[in-house]
Design a protein around this nucleic acid. Structure first.
Length: 936
RNA sequence: GCGCUUGUGGUGGAAUUGGUAGACACGCCAGACUUAGGAUCUGGUGCCUUUGGGCGUGUAAGUUCGAGUCUUAUCAGGCGUACCA
């Protein structure tokens, strides 16, 4: 009886051992090179982990273990993004404090994660909702408040420098309030007026996706566009640096491209237009300066402050009506319903090139938030302007040779310019005959030389709205001293989240923090006190907003470097040792959120000298989503009888989702099914071959489809090593794919085969000190080469295949040699650490003279040696022109003439050369030789 | 609409980067051992076929002695984004 692979016992044993030995504790060690592996930390939801969540963690864990075996000092931490809406909603419904449910969920996550055998250093765990963590979120916010972005230096500077400059320029007001207002225009964290979706009944701002058809998704209350004073982060100031930084990091091209689009750099020109008959003027932004001779009207965004200035008495009523109409529509409605709407303001603008008057219109197709909120319309060469001109009967002037604008506009930036100008004009600028690109440059030059405007780069990236009317988030360390936002002294941080009885907005419409009684700042005693003491002299109200979800997740990677430091977000030494994240693994859904915000946040901290690297994440891998694979049973209409998949077409049936956990290889466990729901207790079945076969479909993994596979069950049935291996075997890490428990047997079988390499039929270790055969060495080194390369490239699925091949080969070769089997254990250790530890220990016990080798985590990664691998390999000969050419691969270090001789002498070539004449030989760089032959 | 991305057996997926397409695994078929198990082991398994061979990487052309891989066109799916002047 062979020794059984008892994974349950093995895994339990090593989980305990790892904790007892602190195997994964990592410390700064100057003698070793660092490597920082990081997973996007999870939000601990109440549903627990499903089998899709650990995919990225397993991939990064393999990489971390691999790097450790290569001799790196690897930081591989884990924590929780623990502020968030679900816990708060649950609190509103049940009265349970969100902290309680959050911590319960965290415990559940930890329990599940621990079963999978990750090499996380839990001593470095962070939770964004704990005061010693959000201390530094608040601190960073204060730093941003106390900084401004210097356009010339392109970096953040202390606000004091700005004050000095303003004083020197004589622009520093004496009034405190005016000072505050002025600085707000520069601070990186600032209070600003922004358009938001406001729902009066819910008393909160809603995100765009929380609003449908002008009413809130939750409750169905009306939502209006409202300008509100909100905390904002001046992310847009960093646009150019965020863009440039992309070229220095190894991220997938698609994520970089998404960020580039999001930042949306566009080069163009700002041009001033005078309002006809007035001394007033306004500025527009255009990327198509070449089309200025084709401007037939101007358009302003409805929210633009220009609207008031240009609206004439006669048009006032009509404009007012239009503004009302626009205001009632949400962003979403504007997106869905693309009707052309607009109103004439009554004024005209003067085209600075032609001197002609063109009407100024107001329309919501122009956005207030981009450029200057005003455009020059060139209907011939812009499809939106074209639609507008058509709708309101405005003239269309083509400016490009051969462009047919009778049906649609010609938007392409190519062709030869015409009609510019149509007749000799006073401007002296002639673009006719130039290409579009030349014309753009010529116009830009003209405009700036004549002082009509200037060359300008615009970015689409907007500042981030940084406040939320929520309870479960970081409180702002801010109080309002006679209405002026003032920072709570740095030494008094963290400002802890107060207790409240009620998590809903107050009766007066204040955010939930308005319910906190002990929530006022006593400036003299420097502490939080009862609101009742507010006196406008020394005791002031504290900010009621909280920070959004991305606040806590923007710099957590820095905190892992030095998680218990009470004096700083991260100590200088720790930061200089760990630098930045070498490998970051997480979903691509964060491309325009977290991955922008944390790059911004880190750049700011870099400017401050807190972080020594400008980019936080060197390499990024986006793991794919794991979809669910649902199973169906087919109930015959109006009965309680279920028919197997192959026979269902003979009946009229309805498919019903069935819990995938009671189905194996698409065969239904009938007893479990009867016990699943009371109504199925008396169910009857029409079987095929004595089995009930279920149908299946790929759907999102969710409770309602009964297709959620819990990793706990897999670990229970097959072990963590099999789960880890199978998740990797499923396909490329970066690809989305359905989970299919069918097939996991293959991985489990492999691990048993691997295990059996080491144990005799009697259950003894059957490893000896014999010399390996050439075959053994070839099998091993093929594997070393493949796995080493695959791990670097994250193609773990092919590594697993390679392990299967090597194991089969070594089994057939009856390999017993320690010189082969020991490296085999070291190779599999990153993938299947439990079985590797067990075997490593067994190998050590059998040969105690080798000494104590500790954990397999520190087993050196086997070195690949090409000598064992490369023999001459023949590629298939090909026929052409009555000749045959074939290719021979030879060892790399051979000289050119040597290659030729060896090739002709090789036994493989002999069988082709027999009775043939060698026409010529071609040595391809490297070690490949082509031999052209023809019949002698 | 725009941007990115992917199309290979019944299924998940390989292919040293231009060199015998389908590795490995699931599933399926046959056999062995068992005496019923959804266990283990061995062999087979792209499609068509008159068993000689023919056809095969979404489709259609092209480059090449040679194309899943390169070029062009085209079709289909996935993801992201949304009036950015």
């Amino acid at each position: 009886m062979a020794k059984e692979y008892n994974f349950r016992e093995i895994e339990k044993k090593w989980h305990q051992r790892w904790v007892a030995d602190e195997t994964y504790r990592v410390r700064e060690d100057e003698t070793k090179q660092k490597f920082y592996v990081l997973n996007m930390f999870p939000y601990p939801s109440g549903a627990g982990l499903h089998v899709g969540h650990p995919l990225g963690y397993i991939a990064s864990d393999i990489y971390a273990r691999f790097k450790r075996q290569q001799g790196f000092n690897v930081l591989n931490p884990m924590g929780y993004d623990s502020y968030g809406l679900p816990a708060e909603q649950y609190a509103i419904q049940t009265g349970q404090h969100p902290e309680k449910t959050t911590f319960q969920n965290i415990d559940r996550y930890r329990e599940q994660l621990d079963k999978i055998g990750f090499s996380f250093d839990w001593s470095r765990e962070v939770r964004t909702c704990t005061p010693d963590y959000y201390h530094w979120t608040q601190w960073a916010f204060q730093q941003m408040f106390n900084s401004y972005f210097d356009e010339e230096l392109q970096k953040a500077q202390p606000i004091a420098k700005l004050i000095e400059r303003l004083k020197a320029e004589g622009r520093w007001p004496s009034d405190e309030r005016e000072q505050s207002d002025l600085l707000m225009q520069y601070r990186i964290a600032y209070l600003g007026e922004t358009m938001v979706n406001w729902c009066p009944q819910l008393g909160t701002v809603l995100a765009n996706d929380e609003v449908v058809d002008g009413v809130s998704v939750r409750g169905g209350y009306p939502v209006e566009q409202k300008k509100m004073r909100q905390w904002c982060l001046r992310v847009s100031a960093y646009s150019q640096r965020l863009l440039d930084g992309l070229d220095t990091i190894q991220w997938s091209e698609s994520i970089k491209e998404t960020q580039r689009n999001w930042i949306g750099r566009s080069e163009g020109a700002e041009v001033r237009f005078r309002i006809s008959g007035k001394s007033d003027e306004f500025t527009i932004f255009t990327t198509r300066a070449d089309t200025m001779f084709g401007v037939t009207f101007m358009v302003l965004a409805p929210e633009s402050e220009l609207v008031e200035r240009v609206t004439t008495e006669g048009q006032k009523a009509e404009v007012e009506a239009y503004l009302q109409q626009v205001k009632a529509r949400t962003e979403r409605e504007r997106m869905i319903d693309k009707r052309v709407t607009g109103v004439f303001s009554g004024s005209y603008a003067v085209n600075p090139l032609t001197g002609e008057d063109v009407p100024i219109w107001i329309s919501d197709y122009v956005l207030a938030g981009y450029g200057t909120g005003a455009i020059m319309a060139v209907p011939a060469h812009d499809s939106r302007d074209y639609a507008f001109a058509r709708h309101f009967g405005l003239p269309i002037i083509p400016l490009i040779e051969g462009a047919d604008v009778s049906e649609e506009s010609y938007d392409a930036k190519e062709g030869i310019v015409i009609n510019s100008p149509r007749q000799p004009s006073g401007s002296g600028l002639v673009l006719n005959g130039l290409t579009v690109k030349e014309a753009i440059e010529a116009t830009k030059r003209y405009v700036s030389e004549k002082g009509l405007g200037r060359v300008k780069v615009n970015y689409r990236l907007r500042d981030a709205i940084f406040s939320r009317q929520r309870y479960w988030g970081e409180p702002f360390p801010v109080y309002y001293k006679r209405g002026i936002p003032t920072m709570i002294p740095e030494e008094c941080l963290p400002l802890e989240l107060p207790q409240v009885e009620n998590f809903l907005p107050t009766a007066t419409g204040e955010p939930p923090l308005g319910n906190a009684q002990i929530w006022a700042w006593d400036e003299v005693n420097r502490k939080v006190v009862d609101k009742a003491l507010i006196d406008e002299e020394t005791v002031f109200p504290i900010e009621l907003y909280t920070m959004p979800g991305f606040a806590g997740s923007s710099a957590y990677y820095l905190r892992y470097m030095d998680p218990h430091n009470p004096k700083a977000l991260v100590g200088r030494e720790a930061d200089e040792y760990w630098q930045n994240v070498d490998l970051y693994v997480g979903g691509s859904e964060h491309a325009t959120g977290h991955l922008i915000y944390s790059r911004f946040w880190n750049k700011f901290l870099y400017d401050l000298g807190v972080s020594c690297q400008e980019e936080p994440f060197q390499k990024l891998i986006n793991q794919g989503m794991i979809q669910g694979r649902s199973n169906f049973v087919y109930r015959i209409k109006d009965t309680n009888t279920f028919v197997s998949l192959g026979l269902k077409d003979q009946y009229e049936t309805t498919p019903i989702h069935v819990d995938v956990n009671i189905v194996k290889n698409d065969v239904l466990d009938i007893e479990a099914f009867k016990a699943w729901r009371p109504e199925y207790e008396t169910a009857e079945f029409v079987l095929e071959d004595g089995k009930y076969v279920c149908g299946w479909a790929i759907e999102k993994m969710s409770k309602s489809m009964f297709n959620v596979v819990n990793p706990d069950n897999i670990v229970e049935d097959f072990g963590a090593d099999t789960l880890r291996l199978y998740e990797m075997f499923l396909g490329p890490v970066e690809q989305s794919k359905p989970w299919d428990t069918n097939g996991i047997d293959g991985c489990h079988r492999f691990l048993r085969k691997f295990w059996n390499l080491f144990w005799s039929k009697e259950g003894d270790l059957q490893v000896d000190d014999s010399d390996p055969t050439g075959e053994n060495l070839k099998s091993l080194h093929t594997l070393i080469k493949k796995v080493s390369a695959d791990i670097e490239e994250f193609s773990y699925n092919t590594s697993v295949s390679a392990f299967m091949v090597a194991t089969n080969e070594l089994g057939q070769q009856h390999c017993r040699s320690r010189k082969i089997l020991e490296p085999m254990v070291a190779l599999i250790a990153p993938f299947c650490p439990h079985i590797a530890e067990e075997l490593w220990e067994a190998l050590g016990q059998k040969f105690p003279q080798k000494g104590d080798r500790g954990s397999v985590c520190d087993a050196p990664w086997p070195q690949f040696d090409e000598r064992f691998l490369v023999e001459s390999t023949l590629k298939m000969p090909v026929q052409f022109n009555g000749k045959v050419r074939f290719t021979l691969e030879l060892p790399a270090d051979m000289q050119k003439d040597e290659v030729e001789r060896a090739a002709l002498a090789a036994p493989e070539s002999q069988k082709y050369l027999e009775g043939q004449q060698v026409v010529k030989t071609i040595v391809v760089p490297g070690r490949i030789i082509n031999i052209v032959i023809k019949p002698a």
